[in-house]
């Protein structure tokens, strides 16, 4: 095992997870501790429940993007991209961390076959769309900054190397699982000797460490937006004159 492989496969994972978790919590706590004025944008929220519904409709359906016809393509691309990411990440978490009866994954795989790769393809296509519109659309190009491209390229790199690793270079998935679990129990075994896997794994770690310092924090911030959350209970203001 070379020095670089050892670093990527044995030490960096711990650093990356630490940076991601501590960084993410630090950012959320910092937002949480900053006083918030009630600046609700109407209509919608007149109670906490409505505020919650509003926030969830944004998180799950990207509802505000549907307010303008010109944003429908962005909605479709962005929504599929995020749903794809959500399914993929959930799949990874399930596979590595949730114990399932023996044979479960084999039967899932048998049932849907290679369709599982469709999710990766959807992310790739929509990710390319998001990247291309930044380059092709002059309005979006002018508001884009370098980190916007970096994030998309990182994600595309992760997805493509992931597809490559499972479909082309056929990494030993059972060993990958064994390796990840060894990292979890703090007694790491050598990582799979597969270039696509190492690339995939390394890019994931880069993204994880970049996450708390980047715009990717919208994943946490969307839950805290003052204009969406806040609601006005009836205080001194009244709608009926008595």
């Amino acid at each position: 095992m070379g020095a670089i492989t050892t670093f990527i496969g044995v030490y960096l994972p711990y650093i990356a997870v630490l940076v991601l978790v501590v960084g993410f919590i630090w950012r959320i706590v910092k937002w949480w501790n900053t006083p918030s004025y009630n600046i609700a944008v109407f209509p919608g929220q007149t109670s906490l429940a409505q505020g919650l519904i509003r926030v969830l409709s944004e998180v799950i359906f990207f509802r505000s993007l549907l307010n303008f016809k010109g944003n429908y393509t962005l909605w479709l691309g962005g929504w599929l991209f995020h749903v794809g990411l959500f399914l993929t990440i959930s799949g990874h978490i399930f596979k590595f961390f949730v114990p399932m009866p023996p044979g479960f994954y084999a039967s899932v795989r048998a049932a849907i076959g290679d369709a599982i790769i469709l999710v990766g393809i959807v992310i790739t296509i929509t990710g390319l769309y998001l990247l291309l519109r930044r380059i092709v659309n002059p309005e979006i190009r002018m508001i884009s900054i370098v980190p916007d491209y970096i994030v998309l390229l990182l994600i595309l790199g992760i997805v493509i190397s992931g597809i490559w690793m499972t479909e082309v270079s056929r990494v030993d998935v059972a060993y990958v699982k064994y390796y990840i679990q060894s990292l979890m129990s703090f007694s790491p075994v050598p990582p799979p000797d597969n270039a696509a896997f190492l690339t995939h794994f390394f890019l994931v770690q880069l993204l994880a460490m970049y996450f708390p310092f980047s715009k990717l924090m919208h994943a946490g911030g969307i839950f805290m937006s003052p204009t969406r959350w806040h609601y006005f209970p009836e205080g001194a203001h009244r709608k009926e004159f008595e």
Partner: peptide
């Protein structure tokens, strides 16, 4: 530091252009 709206809105924009 004193208004969450300012801090959050400076941080989380993804420049989607909507």
């Amino acid at each position: 530091r004193s208004r969450r709206s300012v801090q959050l809105f400076l941080d989380i924009c993804v420049r989607c252009g909507a």
